[in-house]
Amino acid sequence: MPFYPTAKQRQIVWQLWLSLSHTKKVMLQAVCGAGKTEIATLIIASYLRRGGVVGWAIARRDVVVELQERLQAYFPKTTVLGLYQDSPDLGRKGQLIVLTTARLSAFYQSFDFLVIDENDAYPFSVSAFQQATAAMSVIKNAKTLYISGTVEQKDVKDYDAIISLSRRFHERELPQIEFVEQRHTMYREHSDFFKKIAGFIKKGQPIFIYVKSKKKGLDVLKVLIRYWDGCVENVSSNDQKRTEILNRVRSGQTQILITTTILERGVTFKNLQVIVLDADADIFNAATLVQIAGRVGRSIESIEGEIYFYYGSGITYAMRRAKKYHNRANKGEVIFL
């Protein structure tokens, strides 16, 4: 493997093996940035060595593309496919298949082992059809590993066992979340909001600005492009060029990315800073806010970062739950939403 697991990760792998040897549905619940992908990789390696076919399902296409690249690097001698709408791998056969949850319907009793990554994400979390096809995609008595950083307390009963990890792989605390009142003057040049962005850009740090809707994103883009033309872009769920846009962020060409919740999960960028506008909007539930905050401080090269939740009407219960989640994780507690 091109990575060396920490002592804590090896301990979690051992606990997962024990649970999977006695049960069929196991949840790995860990904070964002704990190395859940690497932990699961150590589990699936044994299935691949025995010639088993492994599926790794996740809701969003962007994450499939990124995960396929990572797993191919981890298993260079294994054919790793990435399946999503219009994928070049459609119709091909492989031993390790990374696919969107919508593609599970094409597989019937096919997988010896199945990973369902971020099973609480839309649309899998609300689709009885996708959940049923996931159950039918594995062979008889096959094991399924669920992975998430945001397990609801009410859903604990759905799993045969839950293994929890409340520390990131680099053992540093989760960055603190700060609440900021959203004033009508915030889009003026000398506002606190503008000063924060200017400070991040001066340090060469990329910024994700999360917005509640595509329309809001376009409105914010019109304002910021006056001052940072050439280094600010906007992305949403129906943008067909998301991969190209994300590549420009990684290369440093784009420093400010205005995004909807389409990028709340599964993406990692070094030195990333996060601002959520209208964090008190209904679309930002506790799980979404935790996942968004989880984009910050993930890399060993940039273990710190800043997270700002801007609110208009008031601090919501979801915002408080997200902040409480970070505080409890930093105390080493088992964390459920």
Rank of each mutant, 00 (worst) to 15 (best):
I201P: 08
I209W: 04
G217D: 14
R172V: 15
K215P: 04
L174Q: 10
Y227R: 04
L221S: 01
D160Q: 06
Q240T: 14
E173P: 08
L221G: 03
V223Q: 15
Q255L: 06
E173Y: 09
S166D: 14
T243C: 09
D160Y: 04
D158R: 09
R172D: 13
I163S: 01
H190G: 12
K195L: 11
I256L: 07
L218F: 14
V220H: 06
V232T: 10
E233R: 03
G230Q: 10
Y227N: 07
S251R: 02
K241P: 09
Q240Y: 15
F200P: 09
G230A: 09
T185C: 12
I177N: 09
I207Y: 00
Y159A: 03
G217L: 07
H170D: 11
H170N: 03
L257S: 03
K222Y: 13
F169V: 07
I225E: 14
Q176H: 13
L221D: 01
D192M: 09
S213I: 02
K196P: 14
E173N: 03
Q205S: 10
I209L: 02
T254P: 00
A198D: 15
P206N: 03
P175C: 08
Q255F: 00
I162Y: 02
E173F: 08
S236A: 06
G230F: 13
V235S: 07
D219V: 11
V235E: 05
R167P: 05
R188N: 12
S191E: 10
F169A: 12
G230I: 14
N234E: 15
E181L: 10
K195E: 13
Q240C: 09
D158I: 02
G204N: 05
G252Q: 02
D160F: 00
S213H: 07
R226L: 10
F208E: 01
T254A: 01
S236W: 03
L224W: 01
T243S: 07
R250M: 13
A161S: 08
S164F: 01
T254D: 01
S237L: 01
G199V: 05
I177C: 06
R250C: 12
Y227S: 10
I256F: 02
R167Y: 11
Q176K: 13
L224C: 03
G199I: 00
V220E: 11
R226W: 10
K195Q: 14
E178D: 15
K214F: 02
Y159P: 01
V249W: 08
N234D: 13
I256V: 15
L246K: 01
R248I: 12
